[in-house]
């Protein structure tokens, strides 16, 4: 066998697979969204965007991302710096902190349901402390703020770990010499964090934010488990169009809108945190 062909033979299966199940479906979904069986049309998009639920679910999805991602960024940076300072028990603490990484968003929603439902642990705790007389139903249409808070907490709980892992890996790549030099010149821990960790961590921050923001626009099962129809989000609408309304074209149209939003944000994050050429660790 020609050795020059070998690498191509080895990457052929992945390439074929991704063409068939990743690139081609994009063509299909666009086709589905822009056609009504006979030809090019924008009806699907018009149907979707004119529906009264669309602005609400768009607003909810953005609001949730806006509330969750900055907190997660701060929290994961804090946790990552705490872990790097740790000497004993580092592995145990890291394992505990990364547990949510393996937990499904549906399971995360159910876990927080155990806390927020009417006979749940939050009510039990407040009742036990004598703060309330009878359990209140937090997850009802009468308390939209509580529904939002519950979903927000569940999202922060579930998806901070993925950023943490990326940032811990990134911090591990920063040479210790920089910190030693910083210390020699009298930089405080906070200054070292600002002037060494943050700039050097840029590629990891980029990856972490892109992944996290995309996941934020995909939010679905957590919302279904906690809010159901009380808190419509884009992905839930896609699902509803596909299943309850059996309107594949409209589902594809929303899917394309979610895709467009995700790509826009990916590009914005990549640009904002781009690594200057030649500046590698």
């Amino acid at each position: 066998m020609n050795p020059r062909l070998l690498p191509y033979i080895l990457i052929l299966p992945v390439t074929l697979f991704l063409c068939l199940f990743f690139l081609y479906p994009f063509v299909l979904v666009a086709q589905q969204a822009f056609s009504n069986g006979s030809g090019f049309t924008l009806t699907n998009f018009r149907d979707v965007t004119e529906h009264w639920k669309f602005p609400i679910s768009l607003k909810n999805t953005f609001l949730l991302a806006l509330a969750v991602v900055p907190i997660q960024l701060a929290l994961s940076l804090l946790m990552a710096t705490m872990v790097t300072k740790m000497k004993k028990g580092r592995d145990l603490i890291l394992y505990i902190w990364t547990i949510p990484l393996g937990i499904s968003d549906l399971a995360a929603g159910i876990i927080w349901l155990a806390i927020f439902e009417q006979s749940g642990f939050l009510n039990s705790m407040m009742g036990g402390l004598g703060l309330i007389d009878s359990p209140t139903n937090f997850l009802s249409y009468q308390s939209p703020v509580m529904v939002f808070v519950a979903i927000m907490l569940a999202e922060i709980w579930r998806a901070t770990a993925i950023m943490l892992v990326i940032l811990v890996a990134g911090i591990g790549l920063i040479p210790k010499e920089y910190y030693e030099a910083g210390e020699v010149f009298g930089a405080t821990p906070w200054q070292r964090f600002l002037k060494i960790t943050l700039p050097m961590l840029r590629p990891s921050l980029q990856t972490a934010l892109v992944l996290r923001v995309i996941l934020a626009f995909e939010v679905f099962a957590v919302v279904q488990a906690l809010g159901g129809t009380l808190f419509p989000v884009l992905m839930g609408e896609t699902y509803a169009y596909q299943f309850e309304l059996l309107n594949g074209g409209a589902a594809a149209a929303i899917a394309l809108i979610i895709l467009a939003i995700s790509i826009t944000f990916t590009l914005i994050i990549m640009r904002a945190l781009r690594v200057p050429k030649g500046a590698t660790i």
């Binding site: 199940f21 594949g248 790509i263 990916t266």
Partner: peptide, 17 residues
């Protein structure tokens, strides 16, 4: 590139396929 896309959405066109 696969990481910059919400992949579960691909289930919609694939359902037809």
């Amino acid at each position: 590139l696969t990481r910059a896309f919400p992949l579960p959405l691909l289930a919609l066109p694939l359902a037809v396929m």
